[in-house]
Amino acid sequence: MAAFDHSITMEQGNYDQEEVAKLHSLMNTRALRKKRIRKGVLVGLNIVFALFMLFPLLYSVSVSVMPSEELFTMDMNLLPSNPTFDNYVRAFTQVPLVRFILNSFLVAGCITLGQIITCSLAAFAFSFLEFKGKNVLFMLVMATMMVPGEAVIISNYLTVSSMNLLDTYIVLILPSLTSAMGIFLFRQFYMTFPISLYESARLDGCGNLRFIIKILIPLTKSAIGAMAVYTFINAWNMYMWPLLVTGSEEMRTVQIGISMLNSVDAQSITLMMAGVVAIILPSMVIFIVGQKQLISGMFQGAVKG
């Protein structure tokens, strides 16, 4: 030990304090520069890829503020030279776009709410309750995911038309009130939920409904948020079903409304882009708001972690 200590003092003796400090700062700046360069390269690469991915979106925004004569030239016009909001004004006046947006909001909102309620309740039964045929039933639910929507769309149409529901809000909402995917997502999430909390609640005298409302929902906010965003955007983007079951202009949703812009004035791509940008905004807002909910962290302290 003593010999070891001795050798260290010897080594240090070769440098005086100033030299050591200089050496320190020299090595420090070198390490710092390396770090900065690495970070710069990463950020640069990210920006390039982001631009690449976002190009269609950014280009559609650019086109939507372009006068149409600027688009139909032989030149490469990435950015408008005379930006104008004329397209937006025309998009909102030529078709009842506001009405379409409200329709879509109503339909997507109801579907989201309905799916969250039905899927979470079903998933609760599939993960917390014990009953005969539970696994078989769950398999059946999962099996419905394998049937493509297009395969049953005609029979669904016949069903709702025989119920005289065509061209109403109900027909837009009703078939999507539950989804196997949602049940599956919720169940997977509940499987990770500490079962002892449920058992403890049962011993405390807490019924199933109270458990769901007071304990399960507050603790699974992040799953609900993720599910809500996913469902809302899916419902917002529905095309085939609303096209099939709605006839009047008042019942149209945005996705169909946009294609109406095209049919009224066959060549106006700038007009359509204005409409597209206008309806992308709500789903982006939903996503940005919902993203906060996606961040979990509610489980800290539930059980030993």
């Binding site: 011993l203 059980v303 030993k304």
Partner: peptide
């Protein structure tokens, strides 16, 4: 039913409601 047996239980992982 468990709630009517009037027993209380302490679990290994505490089972406290985190919220």
């Amino acid at each position: 039913e468990p709630k009517d047996r009037d027993l209380s239980m302490v679990f290994q992982n505490y089972a406290l409601y985190p919220q």
